[in-house]
């Protein structure tokens, strides 16, 4: 399923809404999640899962091709943990 198919499904279920509003709704949801994580916040969607930010410490990496050492700065990466309900549903629960 891709973004446009998701938008289409929501539009089909809500014939009273304009297509562009449905697009705005779906986009707002994803935008809000990215925004929260950019501020270092968590987004917890019970039953679905939780988005959070993890810190990766600075380290000395290596260029795998040349074997050369490179300093990698500390950075923050997005992380998603599946919710219990969805995990159970994936396994026939």
């Amino acid at each position: 399923m891709i973004r446009s198919e998701l938008i289409q499904k929501i539009a089909d279920e809500n014939p009273h809404l304009y297509q562009r509003d449905v697009e705005k709704i779906v986009n707002t949801i994803f935008e809000e999640i990215i925004d929260a994580m950019s501020n270092g916040d968590r987004v917890e969607l019970r039953g679905f899962g939780a988005f959070s930010v993890k810190k990766r410490d600075a380290r000395t990496g290596r260029n795998p091709r040349t074997g050369e050492s490179v300093e990698v700065d500390e950075k923050h990466v997005p992380f998603f943990k599946t919710g219990k309900l969805l995990r159970d549903r994936l396994n026939g629960g």
């Binding site: 709704i25 707002t28 949801i29 935008e31 809000e32 999640i33 929260a36 501020n39 270092g40 916040d41 968590r42 987004v43 917890e44 969607l45 019970r46």
Partner: peptide
């Protein structure tokens, strides 16, 4: 650090 929930997403919508 804050935790956002469904409520915050629906508030944004």
């Amino acid at each position: 650090e804050k935790t956002l929930t469904r409520m915050d997403l629906s508030e944004a919508v």
